[in-house]
Design a protein around this nucleic acid. Structure first.
Lengths: 172, 172
DNA sequence: ACCTTTTATTCCACCAGTGAACTATCCGCT
DNA sequence: AGCGGATAGTTCACTGGTGGAATAAAAGGT
C-alpha cells in the first residue's frame, strides 16, 4: 500500500550521507529546496499530461489563461513575457501558435505602433471554459488530506520563499 | 523596497478573476499548485546559475551527487534513471558527459554483464567537495526568516503533496 | 533632423529530452 | 542443452523549448 517514493528516499538518504563528509551543509534547507524542485516538476508533468489532449504546452496555457483572466482580455508580448517568465523570442512563438489556432488575435496598438495588442477571442474564451473544469477533480485530488489551515500555511510559506528568491543577490 | 513579484500578483489577480466566470474553481489549490511551479522553477534556475561555471547541468549535478552520497560510490544507469526521473536514453548521455570529464567511470558488472557499474572517481569526489560549499550561503539566504518550525512544516507539507502525487490515477 | 531607446520579430544555433530500433546478457522452462 | 522471453544499455534521428544577434519600426528627447 504505502510504497515509498524512491526519489524522496534518495533525497533523505543522500543528504544524510553528504552531511557526514561535509558537515556545514544546511541540511534542512537543501532538503526543502530539493523537494520543491521535485514536487514542482511533478506538478508540471501532471499539468502537461492534462494539456496534451488539447495540444497545448505549459507556456501556451499560461499565456492563454492570463489573457482570459484580464478584464479586457488583452495584453502585450512584453507584459506576457514578465508574467510567464519567458523570453521575447519564445513569446513570439507562443503567440504565433495561439493565433494560428484562432484563440487570440494580434494587432498593432493605435497609441503606440511599436506595441502589439494581444486579445483573446470568443473562441479562446470558450476554449478555456471548456478545458479548465476537467482539471478540477485531479487538482483537488492532489490536495486531499490538506486542511484549510494547512493550505493557508502552505500558501504563506511559498510566498515567503518567492519573496526571498526575488531578493537574492544577482551575482554570487 | 518591497517591489512585489509580478508573477505572484498575476497569480492572485488571475485566479480571482477566473473564479468570477468559473465559480467551482478550487482557488486555493490552484494557487498553491501554480506557486509551486513558479517557486520550483525559480529554485531550479538559481541552481543552474550556480552550476554554470562548472559547466554542469541540473541532471548531471544530481547524478553526480547521488553517486557521491552512496557509501560505495557506485550505482547503475537503471537506478540513476529512477532517482533522477530521467529516461534511459538521457542517462546514457549524462554519464557519457561525466565520464568524459573524468568524474565517473563506467565498467561492466562482473555478476551480471548486462549491467553497468557507474562509479564516482577520486576526482569526482573532490569536485563535489569543492563545488557544494559555495552554494551554502545562497541556499541559507533563500531560507532567511524561516524558523526551524516553519521549515519542518514546509518539509512535511511537501512530503504529503509528493505522496498524493504518487497516488494519482495514471489515467484521467 | 538626429540619435537613442523601446518593442517586437526573425534567424540561427544549441541543448536537453524522447521514442524506436538494436545489442548483449540473463533467466526460466521444456 | 537450447529456445523464448525478459532485462539492461546504447545508438540514432528527431522534437521542442531556449537564447543570442541582427533587424525593423516607432517613439522620445535634445
Amino acid at each position: 500500500m504505502t510504497k515509498l517514493n524512491p526519489c524522496i528516499l534518495m533525497i533523505d538518504e543522500g543528504i544524510t550521507q553528504i552531511q557526514h563528509s561535509i558537515p556545514d551543509l544546511p541540511a534542512a534547507d537543501a532538503r526543502i529546496a530539493r523537494m520543491l524542485r521535485l514536487v514542482g516538476a511533478r506538478v508540471e508533468e501532471e499539468l502537461a499530461r492534462k494539456l496534451k489532449p488539447y495540444k497545448l504546452n505549459d507556456s501556451e496555457f499560461m499565456t492563454l489563461n492570463i489573457l482570459y483572466s484580464r478584464p479586457d482580455g488583452t495584453s502585450t508580448p512584453g507584459e506576457l513575457c514578465v508574467f510567464t517568465s519567458q523570453g521575447a523570442t519564445n513569446m513570439t512563438r507562443i503567440t504565433n501558435a495561439l493565433v494560428k489556432r484562432g484563440l487570440i488575435t494580434r494587432q498593432h496598438s493605435k497609441e503606440d505602433r511599436r506595441r502589439v495588442t494581444i486579445r483573446i477571442t470568443a473562441t479562446g474564451r470558450q476554449f478555456v471554459q471548456k478545458m479548465l473544469p476537467p482539471m478540477f477533480p485531479q487538482l483537488k485530488e492532489v490536495f486531499t488530506g490538506f486542511s484549510d489551515g494547512e493550505k493557508r500555511h502552505f500558501d504563506r510559506l511559498l510566498r515567503k520563499l518567492a519573496t526571498n528568491l526575488d531578493y537574492l543577490d544577482p551575482d554570487d
